[in-house]
Structures are given as structure tokens and as C-alpha cells.
């Protein structure tokens, strides 16, 4: 065997484990992903632009983005509240509440989708009450947003919780000693500390919302130009065997998600510069 290469590393098995990792990764993920670029290259630039700027596609992006953004923001508010009560307070049923947070990960999205649709349709348990005051939830953007809140909440709670657990109590005590109220202490001292974690959760929830299909597609109702989400457009283009059009729509969706995550990452790098003590 080639002993020279092994001598550099104390622990044996690098070649084998790296080989298996790369082989599996390439076979299952990288090679298929590459296909999207192969397929997209079959379209000329003008055709590409024409596909992705078509009215239904633009409206699909707009619906997916605006609903995912709203849902991620709502999840930030409730994510902070949930993480806070789970870390800072003792109350009966806390363990159950904590355990329930992951339900959206465990529950198949299609099941969540039909359950939410039935609940929020004008005849459903919850939708009925809103229908009486003239608000329809299912088959509107409100419904889409609710489905995205459902699938996004664990990301935010689980991002904030560990940070809050580790947060040194001295910061709060210092603020109290200086006479600050609980509200001021939270917004000036604690919130900046958990903000980067909240942003991580926000980014994950947002990305998930933009790409989500199963839980959203039922409640969306797929009314053209109104409640058609971007992933559904990819799906319907595929069903019409317009593979290259589907690729174009998917590529833009990927770029949007990527840019958003990059932006969030940039903010976090900036924030961590403030707290890093490498000085």
C-alpha cells in the first residue's frame, strides 16, 4: 500500500471513507443536480427570459416569496415567544409543548396539507368562523401563509432555544441593576443576543416556505395568477412534458433562495464580528 500518503494522517481510513463519501454524494446528489444545468443549456437566453417572465410564472414567484416572507416573520415572533417560555418559565405541560414543536417535521406534508385545508375551508372548524365575517382563508394567500407558518415554526424555535439557554444571566442582571425594566432589558440586551439565531431560523423557514409543496398545494387551491405557488408551476410544466420550461422556473427559484440565504449569511457574519473576541 502507499505508505507515504498514510503517514501524514494519524488515523487510518482516510482514503476509503473519503472515497465512499464522494462516490455516494456524486451518484445521488451531484450528478442529478448537474442535469438541471445541462437541461437549462438547451434553452437560448431569450427563450429562458420569456419562460421565467411569463405572467403565470412571475405571479407564482410573487405568491411563493410574499407568503414565505410573511410566514417566516410570523414565525420569528412566535418562535421567540415559544423559545422564551420553554427556556425561562416552568409550567405544567412544558415537556409536551417542547416535544410538539417538531410535529411539522414528523407529520407528512400531504397530511398537514389536507388537514389544514379542511380546517380552514369556509365549511371547516376554523374557516367557518372567519367565513362569517367575510374572510376566506383556504384557497387564498392567507391559507398559503398559514401552511408555511405550520412547516416553518420548528426551524425558528430550535434555532433560538439553545442560544437562549446558554445566554449568560449576567447581561440581564447588569441591565436590571442599572434600573432597566423587563421590556427594555429584553429589547436592548437580550434581543440583540438572540437575533443572529433568529435570523438563522428565519432563513431556514423562508427557504422551506419558498420550496414547500405538499402542505401548501392543497390549501392554495391553485387559482392561476392568484394562488399558484412556484413549485406547483414546475410540477404543471412537467406534467405537460415541458422539461426545459420547468428547468428554467426551477433555476430562478434556486437563485432566489440562494441569494436570500447569502444575504442572511452576510448579516450574520457582520453580527458575529461584533461579538468575536479574537482581538
Amino acid at each position: 500500500m502507499n505508505k507515504k500518503r498514510h503517514r501524514k494522517r494519524v488515523i487510518p481510513g482516510f482514503g476509503l471513507s473519503m472515497g465512499v463519501t464522494l462516490a455516494m454524494l456524486s451518484l445521488i446528489v451531484l450528478i442529478p443536480i448537474a442535469s438541471i444545468f445541462v437541461s437549462a443549456s438547451g434553452l437560448s437566453f431569450n427563450e429562458f427570459i420569456k419562460v421565467v417572465t411569463a405572467r403565470d410564472v412571475m405571479s407564482g414567484y410573487q405568491v411563493s416569496l410574499s407568503c414565505a416572507l410573511t410566514a417566516a416573520l410570523i414565525n420569528c415572533v412566535f418562535g421567540v415567544i415559544l423559545a422564551w417560555i420553554l427556556v425561562r418559565y416552568e409550567f405544567p405541560g412544558k415537556g409536551v409543548l417542547d416535544g410538539l414543536i417538531e410535529l411539522p417535521f414528523a407529520l407528512p406534508t400531504a397530511v398537514a396539507g389536507i388537514a389544514l385545508t379542511s380546517l380552514y375551508s369556509d365549511k371547516g372548524w376554523i374557516g367557518h368562523a372567519f367565513a362569517q365575517i367575510g374572510i376566506s382563508i383556504a384557497y387564498t394567500k392567507i391559507g398559503i401563509t398559514i401552511a408555511m407558518v405550520f412547516i416553518g415554526i420548528p426551524f425558528v424555535v430550535r434555532a433560538i432555544q439553545p442560544v437562549l439557554e446558554k445566554l449568560d444571566k449576567q447581561y440581564e442582571e447588569a441591565s436590571h441593576m442599572l434600573g432597566a425594566s423587563g421590556k427594555r432589558t429584553f429589547f436592548r440586551v437580550i434581543f440583540p443576543e438572540i437575533f443572529p439565531a433568529m435570523l438563522t431560523g428565519f432563513g431556514l423557514a423562508l427557504a422551506r416556505g419558498i420550496g414547500e409543496y405538499g402542505s401548501v398545494v392543497f390549501i392554495a387551491g391553485n387559482i392561476p395568477y392568484e394562488t399558484q405557488i412556484a413549485p406547483l408551476l414546475i410540477m404543471s410544466k412537467l406534467e405537460q412534458f415541458k422539461y426545459q420550461d420547468a428547468t428554467a422556473v426551477a433555476l430562478v427559484l434556486l437563485v432566489i433562495s440562494f441569494v436570500l440565504l447569502l444575504l442572511i449569511n452576510a448579516v450574520q457574519v457582520h453580527m458575529s464580528k461584533i461579538t468575536s473576541t479574537s482581538h
Binding site: 438541471i36 420550496g211 414547500e212 405538499g214 414546475i234 410540477m235 427559484l253 434556486l254 433562495s257
Partner: peptide
């Protein structure tokens, strides 16, 4: 990170 629909597509 990617949408499951895109996963199916690729």
C-alpha cells in the same frame, strides 16, 4: 436546502 419539487425534477 432545495425544494422537493426541484429534487424530483433533477
Amino acid at each position: 436546502a432545495i425544494s422537493p419539487v426541484i429534487a424530483g425534477l433533477v
